[in-house]
Amino acid sequence: MATAVALEASPTGSVTPGAGEVIIKVEGLTKTYTMGDVTVRALDGVSFEVRRGELLAIMGPSGSGKSTLMNVLGCLDQPGAGTYWLDGVETSTLDDDALAEVRNQKIGFVFQQFNLLARTSALEQVELPLLYAGVRDRQARALEALAAVGLADRARHRPTELSGGQQQRVAIARALVNNPALLLADEPTGALDTRTSEEIMAIFQRLNEEQGITVVFVTHEPDIARHTRRVIHLRDGQINQDAPVPEGERLTARPIQEAPAHEAAAARR
């Protein structure tokens, strides 16, 4: 299987989960939005730590501030107050270009709506972060990343020729291609059906267990959250609960199945 070969070739190797140093540390994160006359506190003093190799979910009802938190963690947005250390670096000291470099090198971000470029092949989508990183031998690495999510045979397909699950896997390959230490996902299964969600979770679990990549994702589905080891609950911009998932409740996702014959045929057309 192509996936297994790609994983063995990975330089990261296997890391014991939960034993790493602190990779994310936030203290008193606050973010307020003004909408007309109303001031909304999206984050209201959030503090927690994530260690290298953890797999954790952030849950909460809509409006609880989980997406805002993810954007701050992904260095896409700056908090109004509070501090965020990523890998020991205080991100508020970084300028726009340094933040772009952090997003490029240290973080892989997966969005609910995939956010792939239109009219661009899967291979080129995955090559983009390498392009901005100034890597020369992009194609080989991009193909490797596509193989790791089981899409080696879809490299030349454009987003419109791929199913939702396949598009999200292209997005994951794009997030992984620069070997980031941290994979952030904002409702990665929100636009997918249950079976496809399961496939995506399997990829996250495998990346976490086999490559030791720290994975943090947002979800509002309890079943999805049960695939992790730790769940943080947000409510009204504050941490409501931060607890490990009990051993007995944890789920292991089914590994990726090859796409059924009719779906593959449709995608190739």
Binding site: G74, L76, D96, D97, A100, E101, R103, N104, Q105, F109, F111, N115, L116, L117, A118, L128, P129, Y132, A133, R174, A175, N178
Partner: peptide, 16 residues
């Protein structure tokens, strides 16, 4: 605009 957002999210600098 969205394309620019995507490019920035995956590491495009201002000058890119």
């Amino acid at each position: 605009t969205r394309e620019i957002g995507i490019r920035k999210a995956i590491g495009a600098k201002r000058r890119d």
